[in-house]
C-alpha cells in the first residue's frame, strides 16, 4: 500500500486535529471544574503544610584530611616588638628641636609614624587584640586523634593487660558495673580476719551471661575463699537471670579475657 502526496497531507492534517482535540478537551474540562463551584473543603479548613524552598546542594566533598598549621615562630615579648617599631628615619617636631639635631624644621615621619626622641616610630604599638578568641593562641594538637585531657593509662591502672590492677572506679563502664555487682555480692564477716588475698574470675559472654567462674588464686583462708566463691556464684545467678549484653566495642576485651576481682587484706574489725 502506498499514498500520494495529497493523501499523506490529508492523513497528517486529520491526525494533527485528533491529537489537538484529545489534548485540549481535558484542559477545558479541568478549567471549568476550577471555576464557579469548587469541590473539596474551603481553603480556610485545609491543613497547611509548610515546605521549604528547595536549594541547590553544595557539591559533596570527601572528608578532607586536616593539615596542621606550621608551628608559630616564637618571638620574645616586647623587646622584638619595640625594635620593630623603630624606623631608621630621623625627625623633629619643633623649630628648636630641629635645630638641636640639625634637621630642617618640618621633617616629619609621615602617616602611621610619629616622632619620638628624633626617631620615627610606628604610631600604634602592636598590642594583642583582646577581642580575639581567647583560645586562638592554644596550639593545635599534633595528633588530630589524640584525646584531650590527661593521659588515662598510668602504670598499674586498669589497662586490659593480662594482670593489670586497678581501682573499681577505673576501667570501662561495663567492668565497673560488674565490679559494682561484685561489691554488692561479696561480704566477709568483720569478726574474722584474713591476711591473704583471694582472686576470683568471671567469664562474661557476649550476651551478658556468665559462662563460668573460677577461683584464680586462693588466699589460704577457707572462709575468705568461700566468701569469694559465694560472691561469684551470686553474680553468675544475677547476670544469668538479668544479663547485660556487652557493648559491641568491648566485645573482644570483655569476652576473651577473665574479669577477675582481688580482695585486699582483711583485718579483723573489733
Amino acid at each position: 500500500m502506498s499514498f500520494k502526496d495529497s493523501e499523506l497531507h490529508l492523513v497528517a492534517a486529520i491526525g494533527a486535529t485528533v491529537v489537538s482535540v484529545a489534548l485540549s478537551v481535558p484542559v477545558v474540562l479541568l478549567a471549568g471544574s476550577g471555576g464557579d463551584k469548587p469541590d473539596g473543603p474551603p481553603l480556610e479548613n485545609m491543613e497547611a503544610i509548610e515546605a521549604s524552598i528547595a536549594y541547590k546542594k553544595a557539591p559533596a566533598k570527601q572528608p578532607q584530611k586536616q593539615t596542621r598549621q606550621p608551628d608559630p615562630v616564637a618571638t620574645p615579648d616586647s623587646i622584638a616588638r619595640t625594635d620593630d617599631k623603630i624606623t631608621d628615619a630621623k625627625c623633629c617636631t619643633t623649630r628648636a628641636d630641629c635645630g638641636a639635631v640639625k634637621l630642617a624644621f618640618g621633617t616629619d615621619c609621615g602617616s602611621g609614624l610619629k616622632c619620638e626622641r628624633h626617631q620615627c616610630v610606628k604610631d600604634k604599638p602592636d598590642k594583642p587584640d583582646d577581642t580575639k578568641d581567647p583560645l586562638s593562641n592554644v596550639p593545635d594538637r599534633r595528633d588530630p586523634d589524640e584525646q584531650p585531657g590527661k593521659p588515662t593509662t598510668e602504670v598499674g591502672d586498669f589497662n586490659d593487660n593480662a594482670r593489670g590492677f586497678a581501682e573499681t572506679t577505673k576501667g570501662d563502664e561495663y567492668s565497673q558495673q560488674l565490679a559494682a555487682d561484685f561489691n554488692d555480692a561479696f561480704e566477709y564477716p568483720k569478726v574474722l580476719s584474713a591476711s591473704g588475698s583471694v582472686v576470683g574470675c568471671l567469664h562474661v559472654l557476649a550476651d551478658g551471661k556468665i559462662a563460668k567462674y573460677k577461683i584464680d588464686t586462693k588466699s589460704g583462708d577457707d572462709t575468705l575463699d568461700d566468701a569469694m566463691e559465694r560472691a561469684l556464684k551470686a553474680i553468675e545467678k544475677l547476670r544469668n537471670e538479668h544479663p547485660k549484653p556487652v557493648p559491641t566495642y568491648l566485645l573482644k576485651a570483655i569476652t576473651t579475657q577473665w574479669r577477675c576481682f582481688k580482695t585486699k587484706s582483711l583485718e579483723q574489725q573489733r
Binding site: R163, Y188, A227, L251, C260, K262
Partner: peptide, 24 residues
C-alpha cells in the same frame, strides 16, 4: 553460640574492698 565462648586466655584484675558485715 557466643562470639567468644572459648576459655579466656588472660585476665583483667580489679581490686575490690570487701564489705565487712555480721557473721551469718
Amino acid at each position: 553460640g557466643p562470639a567468644f565462648a572459648d576459655d579466656p586466655k588472660g585476665g583483667v584484675v580489679i581490686d575490690v574492698n570487701a564489705k565487712r558485715g555480721l557473721y551469718p
